[in-house]
Write a protein that binds this DNA or RNA. Sequence first.
RNA 1: GCGCCUGUAGCUCAGUUGGAUAGAGCAUCAGAUUUCUAAUCUGAGGGCCGCAAGUUCGAGUCUUGCCAGGCGCGCCA
Length: 563
Amino acid sequence: MQKLKKYNVLPDLIQDLKIFLVESLGDDVLIDDIEFLRPSDEVMGDISTNFALKKASKFKKKPRDFAQELKLIVEKSTFSVNFNKIETAGPGFLNFYFSDLFISNGLQYIKNVDKAYGSSNIGNGKNIIFEFVSANPTGPLTIAHARQAAVGDTLCRIYKKIGYHVCAEYYLNDRGVQIYNLGHSVYSRYMEKCGFKADFPENGYKGEYIVDLAESIFQDENKKYVDWEKEKAISAFSDKAYHVIFDEIKNDIKEFNVHFDTWFSERKLEEEGRIENALKDLQDKKIAYEKDGALWFRTTDFGDDKDRVLVKSDGSTTYLASDIPYHWDKLKRGFGKLVNLVGPDHHGYISRLKAAVDAYDEKGSEKLKVLIVQLVTLYRGKTQVRMSTRLGEFISLRELIDEVGIDAARYYFARRKPESLLDFDIELAKQQTPDNPVFYVQYVYARIASILRKYKEQFGNRKINPYGDLNWNSMENGDRSLIKSLLRFPDTVKGAALNFEPQRITLYLENLAAVFHSYYNKNKILDPDNTEKMDMRIHIIKSVALIIKNGLEIVGAGAPEKM
RNA sequence: GCGCCUGUAGCUCAGUUGGAUAGAGCAUCAGAUUUCUAAUCUGAGGGCCGCAAGUUCGAGUCUUGCCAGGCGCGCCA
């Protein structure tokens, strides 16, 4: 007699079942032909396959007959122990219902691996780099940056979970015309402060923070710079200003629970001569040429609709000129996948960037994934808040953290598909009403924490059954449904990662929370008259709490013990 | 004009990458607490999935063409 095949994790069961079916059916079937999905309704089973429906014609059989054959094959196999029943249904679906053995094994597995539950080794240690935010250090981060930060950080956490070696990087534009504008703006405010009439730059930054910076320099060094030659002073002010602003950016990002591994400096790229080298390289390869006194990148060779300027006729370089060696550097560092999160205004830039990486590596553009993170439309109640960094009108990340709170903000940003526009009503978000789904999810954790406190208080002296000795016979349908929700977590993490869709995590959490709250209302957990059931349920809700906490952590929010 | 995104309930959005009877929250209405946290739960109403063709056993999902909205198309960043 063959040994029965027991499983702990859903993906493993499905994978082996596919392999088994391929072996049983012979050469004509590929593993990718077989697909398992989740029926829309629980009464239609826990997992189901449409294989019979899809391939019946190939086997010259009627779909329902074919499904019936498959049903018998699995029933006779060593897999049958994982299923309570298998049924053919509809036009030719085959529906599988989990056995209590599979369900209880699954729960036991969650308990055993604890915090690692949901992790997998799909990435197999491959290197992936996420570049996001990368805002110019010329002003505070806005709410649009906040969304990018939240989405990027969450994606990084998800990819770590599925076994990738992840690098989160911030590309710092610490040179160039915007940094000059920043210095010039502060210089003008400083000169005004010192009683001189100063010309404010046309594209200068008009925010109040510029005045504050000038004020602070005046406090520290008084009228020291008044006699300096203008350009020299502006250069000094540029340096001072961007360091102060960049430090604030770093602080805000850290407080927002967002982690960067590396901060890549454009200025350093220039100082090391790598921009120049890259341009020379392109010219040697004849994919850059001079025309009208400028240097052009022949991006049309790579599918762009027109060539792009690298060096302007005034001798200064464009962003693209720096981005080329920067992205080559990413490839040199051994990243097999480059993910860039950018705003929708950079959309036209994608083909340029693809050309840049292709110029270095034939497969460069396959490795590069540019994810557009859409804008946030901000509301205060019904009124839309218009934003412009240069005009100094915005809601900063700092204000967002202060007003809305980190948990709610992070959760809110993770909740929507990155490429969808997001309406963010500050008034609503800061009200902390039940409208806010993060509280609904966090409440699960707080409720369970409360039950566990009470359990310890009332039954703390009781000897608790070792986990393996739990009596699963007392499982009811409510228990089964709740555990089955828990078994979906690993696949959810995988799907969120491979599709770059963090909202799948929050969606899962809200669904799990709904299942739990409903369960809570119907089932008494602490029941001294039935300690076997109580022990079992304590283990179930501990696992629920574990996954809620794991899930919230992925989106950067916390799980409070009390609310 | 070209390109990208979006269009699903009154509102905000899901829809597991082509599956079975299209879902949830809010709002509206009707209920639930001698009980572990009511920030909760149970139920009801609410739909031309923008429109029209096509692909096939099967389409909210894929293709094409329209319609509507948003954004981008510089020797700006």
